[in-house]
Simulated scan of single mutants.
Amino acid sequence: MMKIAILGATSQIARDLIVSFSAEADKKLHLFARRPDEVAKWLASAGLSGCYPVDDFAEFVGHEFDAVINFVGVGNPAQALAMGSSIFDITLRFDEMVLDYLKTHPACRYLFLSSGAAYGSSFNEPATRDTAATVAINNLAPHEWYGVAKLHAECRHRAHPELNIIDIRVFNYFSRTQDIDARFLITDILRAIRDKTVLKTSSDYIVRDFLHPSDFYSLVCVLLAAPPANAAVDCYSRAPIDKPALLAAMQKEFVLQYEITGNDAGVNATGGKSHYYSLNTRAADFGYQPSLTSLECILIEAKKIITPLVVG
């Protein structure tokens, strides 16, 4: 039986992982959040009422865990902008809480949800194993704070090679639980389909790599089962997708209407990135093999989102 602490259990990606874990009898989860009541209500709505204990973060240190997965942070770009500089304090506070725990529980594994933004805001080409992080130290803009906070955390982790810490850099993640009101290109597309309106989008060429919940779950499982390590891995699907192909597929499958205009109305909380994905397959060294492409991920999950909306 593996005892796993989930920090930040209100996040979308954490909840998807909890649902995936619920099918495994040998994983015992303990959920922590700033709003435990909200997590308990969600568990009930997901048919998991009473399956897992839920506590405030203050209760974390009093337990024995084999692994800790830290999801604390934000996944919505508008929220990231609204948090401003507090993203530094929040990231540091909860990261240090886990690092202090590891000092007295050195056998515990720590998976930290990092971001592709840790590489910096320049993605004129995809990241590779040789890509260096770039920080505009003399002209740091607010949209770069999120990525720098993640980079700082990764630096702290590499400074403790004796501890079992793996940073998971998430680039783009998509599931049926996605908040359709969030400001991403994919959610703008979904709202246009729902409302039968014309999506207005720029001609900018971008490439994205959307990770499916099942592939994220697969990655987490291989990292928990692998020999202890102190490292960072990038998330990736079987294949990324560019904007023209995405628009064409959504038009074909869901009758999306779109118009190419001068500017995007979306929120670029971490800066505009033309090729925001990674060719760094370090995760394969741990046994990770993605099952789905970005397009397959989007079509599978979008159907689950759109069908109820259209019927309703």
Rank of each mutant, 00 (worst) to 15 (best):
H63W: 12
N76M: 10
A67T: 11
K28P: 03
A67R: 05
G47I: 05
A82C: 14
A44N: 12
F71K: 08
A80E: 10
H63K: 04
A58K: 00
F88L: 09
D66N: 09
G73F: 11
Q79V: 10
E96A: 14
G47D: 08
R93S: 15
I87P: 01
A82R: 15
S49Y: 08
E64K: 15
A46T: 00
D95A: 11
G75Y: 07
V74Q: 05
A82Q: 15
R35H: 13
L43K: 02
R93C: 11
M83G: 07
H63C: 07
S49G: 11
D26G: 02
W42V: 07
A40P: 05
D37M: 10
I69Y: 01
V39Y: 03
D89L: 14
P36G: 01
S85N: 08
D55V: 09
G84W: 01
V39M: 03
G62A: 00
D66T: 12
P77L: 15
V68F: 12
K27S: 04
W42I: 05
R34H: 13
K28N: 14
R93V: 15
G50E: 09
C51N: 08
N70D: 02
G75K: 01
Y52M: 04
L31F: 03
P77D: 00
D95W: 00
C51A: 15
R35C: 13
F65E: 01
R35S: 15
S86M: 10
Q79G: 14
L43D: 02
P53T: 15
A33Y: 00
V68W: 04
S85K: 15
E38P: 04
I69M: 02
T91F: 06
E64W: 11
T91V: 09
I90T: 12
Q79F: 06
P77C: 13
G84H: 02
S86E: 01
L29I: 05
N76G: 14
I90R: 01
M83A: 08
H30C: 14
D56N: 12
A44G: 13
G47H: 06
H63R: 05
L92Q: 14
W42T: 04
K28M: 13
A78N: 05
C51E: 11
L29H: 03
S85P: 14
R34P: 02
S49P: 08
K28L: 14
P77K: 13
F88D: 14
N70T: 05
N76I: 10
A67Y: 07
F57T: 05
D56I: 02
G50Y: 04
V72N: 02
A46M: 06
A67W: 07
G73Y: 02
S86D: 01
L92N: 13
F71N: 03
S45I: 04
V61E: 09
F60Y: 04
S45V: 11
S45H: 03
C51H: 15
D55N: 09
A67F: 09
